[in-house]
Design a protein around this nucleic acid. Sequence first.
DNA 1: GCCAACGTTGGC
DNA 2: GCCAACGTTGGC
Length: 152
Amino acid sequence: MARWLVKTEPSECSIDDFAAKSGASIPWDGVRNYQARNFLSQMSEGDEVFVYHSSCKHIGIAGVVTVTRSAYPDPSQFDPASPYHDRKSTLEKPRWQAVDMSFVYKLPRLIPLDELKSLPGLGDLALIRKGSRLSVMPVSDEAWQVILQQVG
DNA sequence: GCCAACGTTGGC
DNA sequence: GCCAACGTTGGC
């Protein structure tokens, strides 16, 4: 079982949106960065994922979701009406992948970015590297534990 | 809203 | 294959 972190603007899809659909799966689509896509493709059913809220008032890790369906071609790439449409994608050769995820739990408190930056043992986490824009990234077992310890 | 850092595109 | 220009991300 692997562990990951995904960024999301809470106005798009927050941990509360997952909680509101607890028990149901939500597609994680619209990823349009090759490195992020490659990580999406490596996800397996049952993997655990931190949900990080970005570009908002309270920036930080808000909760945990789990992968309920591993990578499949992201339908939005074929939809001309979607902002994620990619005219270079074909059914035979899709460029982009999506996974499905469902709610596991919300953290008792949000762990702010400042606090994450102050933690030892997260050195290799792309999230806290200056200038990193990667929106899907692996989290080592050690980093996962260090982060969770912050909230007991 | 600003802007630094980044990834992608396209002309050459 | 280089690299300038452009569009986007995301913290502040």
